[in-house]
Simulated assay, not measured.
Amino acid sequence: MAVYHDFEFVDERNDCVIAKINIEDIFLDYVMEQQAYEVDCLYNLIPSINPGYVKEPYRSKVPSDKGLNYCGISVINHYSFDYLKKIFLEWIDILEKLDDEYYYPYLVDLNEDQLAEISFEEMKGLKETLFVKSEVLKKLNICMHYLETMNSPDIVIYYYGI
Rank of each mutant, 00 (worst) to 15 (best):
I26Y: 07
L28K: 12
D29G: 13
Y30P: 12
V31K: 09
M32H: 15
Q34P: 01
Q34V: 02
Q34F: 00
Q35C: 10
A36T: 12
A36R: 15
E38F: 01
D40K: 00
C41T: 07
L42Q: 02
L42I: 03
Y43N: 00
N44T: 01
N44R: 00
N44L: 01
L45R: 00
L45N: 00
I46T: 04
P47R: 03
S48H: 03
S48E: 04
I49V: 11
I49D: 08
P51I: 10
P51C: 10
Y53R: 06
Y53P: 02
Y53S: 10
V54I: 15
V54S: 08
V54K: 09
E56W: 01
P57A: 00
P57T: 00
Y58K: 03
Y58M: 05
Y58H: 04
R59M: 04
S60C: 02
K61V: 14
K61M: 08
K61L: 07
V62Q: 08
V62K: 11
S64D: 14
S64K: 15
D65M: 10
K66R: 12
K66I: 05
K66C: 07
G67L: 01
L68Q: 01
L68M: 06
L68W: 01
N69K: 06
Y70G: 00
C71D: 04
C71V: 06
G72Q: 03
I73S: 03
V75R: 04
H78P: 11
H78L: 11
H78Y: 12
H78I: 14
Y79V: 13
Y79P: 11
S80C: 05
S80H: 02
S80N: 07
S80D: 05
F81T: 14
F81I: 14
D82H: 11
Y83H: 11
L84P: 10
L84S: 08
L84R: 10
K85L: 15
K85G: 09
K85S: 13
K86E: 15
I87N: 11
F88W: 08
L89E: 15
E90R: 10
E90F: 12
W91F: 14
W91R: 07
W91Y: 11
I92L: 13
I92T: 12
I92G: 09
D93W: 01
D93F: 03
